[in-house]
């Protein structure tokens, strides 16, 4: 059961039908992947798993994910035409069905190439009522809901990096709502996922990027 945050989760959300999980949630998953890639990708290969694979087509799951990748909100009336809009704007989107193991039945795996030619892998699930969770970011297992702005920090797995990054946020009075740290293996690349109560200003991002051991910082807005 999705979390009931407010009256407008019961009388809402406003969405393009037919399904809050297969359409509205799929659109949010696309939007979250777009936010992670830093904008509309130029290429996307999307694997639909489980119920997304079997009934997604009839629910417009493909159109909804494409709409999210294009930056359309789940209630944008262009959503049903998102595949042709993507084609016309030169965004290549390919859908395949596949088995992603014991993932949630409503799961999609998005392999994106951004405008700068960099690749991103985003895997996530639609949990019902429009709630989503990204569970895999490149090689790192995560749990990202898109409810709050987030920071993705890729860094060397070395002592002191996590403390330096959180100290930088504390210095600017940015409250951390949640934080996850995972690594490829000891001493290799690691990923910090930090959800914050407010968006993180650019100068703070630059400050974090300058921390010794940090390889890359990305800001992922709430969707």
């Amino acid at each position: 059961m999705p979390r009931q945050r407010s009256l407008f989760d019961i009388i809402g959300p406003v969405m393009i039908g037919p399904s809050s999980s297969h359409t509205a949630g799929a659109a949010r998953l696309g939007a979250l992947a777009r936010a992670i890639a830093g904008g509309t990708p130029r290429q996307a290969r999307i694997t639909l798993h489980g119920s997304f694979a079997s009934t997604g087509r009839g629910h417009g799951t493909d159109r909804a994910i494409a709409a999210g990748l294009l930056g359309f909100a789940p209630d944008d009336e262009r959503l049903p035409d998102a595949l042709s809009i993507a084609r016309e704007s030169g965004v290549q989107i390919e859908f395949v069905t596949g088995d992603l193991g014991d993932a949630h039945p409503n799961t999609a795996r998005l392999e994106l190439v951004d405008a700068a030619g960099r690749s991103h892998l985003v895997q996530g699930s639609s949990l019902g009522g429009g709630d989503v969770v990204v569970t895999l970011l490149d090689d790192f297992p995560v749990e990202l809901s898109g409810e709050l702005p987030a920071l993705v920090v890729v860094h060397h797995d070395q002592p002191g990096v996590v403390a330096a990054v959180t100290a930088r946020l504390a210095a600017d009075v940015i409250n951390i709502a949640s934080m996850q740290v995972s690594r490829e293996r000891r001493g290799a690349r690691a990923l910090m996922l930090i959800e914050t109560d407010e968006p993180v200003p650019d100068e703070v991002l630059a400050g974090i990027a300058a921390v010794d051991g940090v390889l890359e910082v990305r800001s992922v807005p709430a969707v």
Binding site: V14, I16, G17, P18, S20, A24, D75, G130
Partner: peptide
Amino acid sequence: EVNACMGRVVAAPTGGASGVL
């Protein structure tokens, strides 16, 4: 029907039941 035809609706409480209220 608007929901089934990918129109804009209020999920209240869900898309599938959005015609009732």
